[in-house]
């Protein structure tokens, strides 16, 4: 690369990064600024909106509930999807395409459309079984399927599943032992990946909860904003930072374990 072109390229990159940083960081900063404003026009900075979070019962409950939902959805996902994917790979490879198709299907069915079909189901569930919000986990599992499938798929592709299980089985391990002591320990990144993606998706979910009449974190933030904008924005900042930390952990943990460059330098 010639010197002048390199300089021009670096200048262009600098401008692009600067503009992107402004567009993406200023709104986050502005939100934080907004949540620390006082009541009057020239009043001092205050953290009273932040301090009010624990004393707003709606919010406190919603935070707990959303965290529970995130945890349950992740566990359900691992309990249902991982064994199925392993089993299909080992014993029913011809079902592989079908399972993949089903798992990626939610990408083509918008949540707002799916909720139309799922609403009758939830009316029936709340009438006959439970009206607990935790039942939402089942619907959330559908929403996280494509993302969870992709990261577990990548993890399974990276290990030689067949040889590992055959070795374990020949040494006398049952299927449960194979799953917990052979498969899981060999793909920690993929499992962490799938779980954190699921958790962050659930923490940000609004469509299903709102239209199925449940109050999760995002719905509560909306309600509280009608009464106290400052407090709800403070919670929004907090939840955003939380999701950000989750996903940062994920991508840096993942990046360290699977350094794979696309081979452009042969």
């Amino acid at each position: 690369m010639t010197r002048s072109r390199r300089i021009r390229l670096q200048a262009l990159r600098f401008v692009i990064f600067a503009l992107a940083a402004a567009f993406f960081l200023v709104p986050i900063g502005a939100m934080f600024e907004f949540s620390t404003r006082g009541i009057g026009i020239n009043s001092a900075r205050t953290f009273s909106a932040w301090a009010a979070i624990p004393s707003t019962p709606e919010l406190a409950t919603a935070i707990t509930v959303s965290l529970e939902l995130a945890l349950i959805t992740s566990l359900l996902m691992l309990g249902l999807l991982l064994p199925t994917m392993v089993w299909v790979r080992l014993r029913l490879p011809r079902l592989n395409r079908i399972v993949e198709f089903i798992c990626l299907m939610p990408l083509t069915v918008p949540a707002i459309a799916l909720v139309v079909g799922i609403k009758p189901l939830y009316i029936w569930i709340s009438l006959n079984f439970t009206d607990s919000i935790l039942a939402l986990s089942f619907a959330y599992l559908i929403l996280v399927l494509p993302y969870a499938y992709r990261s577990l798929d990548a993890g399974l592709a990276a290990i030689d599943l067949k040889i590992l299980t055959e070795a374990a089985r020949s040494l006398g391990a049952g299927w449960g032992t194979v799953m917990l002591r052979v498969v899981v320990p060999n793909m920690p990144t993929a499992i962490l990946n799938a779980s954190l993606l699921s958790a962050s998706l659930v923490l940000g979910e609004y469509t299903f909860a709102n239209l199925l009449n449940y109050e999760n974190l995002q719905v509560a933030i909306q309600y509280v904003s009608l009464v106290s904008a400052g407090t709800s924005i403070a919670v929004a900042v907090a939840s955003l930072l939380f999701a950000f930390v989750l996903l940062m952990i994920l991508s840096f943990a993942g990046g360290r374990l699977q350094v794979r460059s696309p081979g452009q330098r042969a």
């Binding site: 249902l80 999807l81 064994p83 199925t84 089993w87 299909v88 014993r91 029913l92 079902l95 399972v99 089903i102 299907m105 939610p106 069915v109 459309a113 799916l114 139309v116 079909g117 799922i118 009758p120 189901l121 089942f138 619907a139 599992l141 559908i142 399927l145």
Partner: peptide
Amino acid sequence: GVVPFFIYVGIFLLLPTTII
């Protein structure tokens, strides 16, 4: 081995799609 998965997606994904 795959029955739980198919029952689950049958109820929460395929059934709603069919309803629509």
